[in-house]
């Protein structure tokens, strides 16, 4: 009897803490979202209530859409993130394959060379990166951002993918080789389709920091034409700090794409993080 009671108490305690912290995690985001749909007076008078027919207003969204180059910022972020991701995955998989499949002199050193980039943040080289971009005439271009993000994302991609490739059954490659299939064909037609789950994990880990980065857009591409959404929101809000409608609306708009993506991919994402554990 007593044993059961303790278990109920323990379970209640667990849920109180988890639910309590979940509310704390969601509250700020919900608060911004509900106030984005209110008029200015209601934002200040009753910040905690849901918008109703009286307080409903879309003025903030209208301002955000009109003033900021919201769609171009959004487009820039999409281009940079998708292009970087594509090349990180392609070049990363190719290098990981070379390092895990073929034994050659110096392969261990190369692996260590790439591993260094996981621990040491690429930001520390910013002074020289800016100089290189100036000399290549790439300042204020999206190309500059893409190049830096590829360099930033490769080390982790290579580590995760090469570990995964080592676990692939040997028979598959050997069978293909016996049939006289070339090394490139083996990689693109046999190996790439097999590593899809690992590619998905790498994609998620790599995508989020690129989308959210403020540092490199601020330094390499601060021009209005090339601003990413993160930098754009930062500057826009700095300018309109007192226009609460516009600020709340643009924050909600900036959160939205990530929120939508997360709703679709949260399962895979969480499985990807815990995948190493389920052996």
């Amino acid at each position: 009897m007593q044993h059961k009671a303790t278990r109920y108490a323990g379970s209640a305690f667990t849920h109180v803490i988890l639910a309590g912290y979940s509310i704390l995690a969601l509250f700020p985001i919900v608060l911004i979202a509900i106030n984005a749909f209110k008029d200015r007076a209601s934002i200040f008078d009753s910040p905690l209530s849901l918008p109703n027919s009286e307080s409903w207003s879309l003025i903030g969204f209208e301002k955000a859409m009109k003033n900021a180059h919201f769609f171009s910022f959004f487009g820039n972020s999409m281009i940079v993130t998708v292009t970087s991701l594509f090349f990180i995955l392609l070049f990363g998989a190719m290098a990981a394959w070379a390092l895990s499949e073929y034994k050659f002199r110096g392969s261990r050193w190369l692996l260590a060379f790439f591993a260094f980039g996981i621990m040491v943040p690429i930001r520390l080289g910013t002074v020289s990166i800016l100089q290189i971009m100036v000399s290549l005439n790439l300042v204020n271009t999206l190309t500059a951002l893409v190049l830096v993000y590829i360099a930033q994302g490769l080390p982790l991609a290579i580590m995760i993918l090469s570990e995964f490739m080592q676990q692939l059954p040997k028979e598959l490659k050997e069978a293909a080789r016996c049939d006289g299939v070339g090394e490139f064909k083996i990689f693109f037609q046999v190996i790439l389709p097999l590593i899809r789950p690992a590619v998905a994990t790498v994609a998620v880990f790599t995508m989020v920091p690129i989308w959210n980065d403020l540092w490199f857009p601020l330094i390499l591409a601060p021009g209005e034409e090339t601003q990413t959404i993160t930098l754009g929101v930062q500057q826009f809000i700095g300018q309109y700090a007192t226009d609460w409608n516009a600020v709340l609306a643009s924050l909600s708009l900036a959160v939205l794409p990530v929120l939508v993506l997360y709703m679709f991919f949260s399962r895979q994402l969480i499985r990807g993080i815990t995948a190493g554990a389920v052996k």
Binding site: F91, F116, S128, L147
Partner: peptide
């Protein structure tokens, strides 16, 4: 061919800037 693209971009835009810094 497998190694060159990754090595080149990583060396030029990550490793070299760090050393140069």
């Amino acid at each position: 061919v497998f190694l060159a693209p990754a090595l080149l971009i990583y060396a030029v835009f990550s490793a070299w800037p760090l050393i140069d810094t």
